[in-house]
């Protein structure tokens, strides 16, 4: 049954996911070309110096990309369910409704995760090509908060789409905007690393938090 559910999610996501995949590839290409250009223009050791000691990040284009992708995927997945409250069709299927919503969210998070892995691998590969491996390694904890911001944005957007009442929608919008903005604090590589465990705790909480909003969606029937 979950295969069937995943098929449904994939049907909604496929074009958006493909587009996002291409955009993420494009971002990686931009990073590659940016580094190539600056290394051609300046001395390699100066570029290294900027990257190591001045904390210049050459993968800046990835900063807000997971966040935007999260919002787009959430919309792609849940707009068709919310318009005309079509999700009632799925909610009536013989499966526990929390489990159903949970699986739908997992499907979305999985696609977001694939793009995150793509970002991590391509960034590391590009950095390995031009820099010592320490820089590629340092990109991981630097990218993780941005990726987590994508998960938070995704779950926040689902919250907003499912929530039937406007005041609560505004409240959640503020809460999730605040939460995702935390992920962009500081600058340079590894700034947020000591707080990573805290950040990684936010996503499971947000995932759990959506379930009750799902119930409200289900029961917040018309009139």
């Amino acid at each position: 049954m979950w295969q069937s559910l995943f098929m449904k999610e994939w049907l909604k996501l496929r074009w958006y996911f493909t587009a996002a995949f291409l955009v993420h590839l494009g971002a990686a290409l931009k990073i590659l070309l940016d580094i190539r250009q600056i290394i051609l223009m300046e001395h390699g050791e100066m570029v290294w110096y900027q990257a190591i000691h001045l904390h210049t990040l050459f993968y800046g284009p990835l900063r807000y990309l997971p966040l935007i992708t999260g919002l787009v995927l959430a919309a792609a997945q849940f707009m068709p369910e919310v318009s005309g409250r079509r999700m009632r069709i799925s909610l009536h299927l013989p499966m526990d409704q929390n489990r159903m919503l949970f699986l739908c969210l997992l499907a979305g998070l999985f696609h977001l995760g694939v793009l995150a892995v793509l970002d991590l691998l391509l960034t590391a590969a590009i950095l390995l090509w031009y820099f010592p491996h320490e820089l590629a390694l340092a990109s991981l904890p630097t990218l993780l908060p941005w990726i987590n911001a994508g998960f938070i944005a995704y779950l926040g957007a689902v919250h907003l789409l499912l929530e039937p009442s406007w005041p609560r929608r505004v409240f959640y919008a503020l809460v999730f905007t605040a939460l995702s903005s935390l992920h962009f604090a500081g600058s340079g590589y590894g700034w947020l690393t000591p707080a990573l465990p805290f950040f990684l705790l936010l996503s499971p909480l947000a995932l759990l938090g959506v379930l009750d909003t799902g119930r409200r969606f289900r029961q917040g029937g018309v009139s």
């Binding site: 929390n98 999730f176 605040a178 935390l182 936010l202 909480l205 938090g209 959506v210 379930l211």
Partner: peptide, 22 residues
């Protein structure tokens, strides 16, 4: 029992957001 837990999760998230930002 999942839904009360879910509400507490949302409340905790809200508290984190509020007590960072405000």
């Amino acid at each position: 029992t999942l839904n009360p837990l879910s509400r507490w999760a949302a409340r905790i998230l809200a508290v984190i957001a509020i007590f960072f930002i405000l």
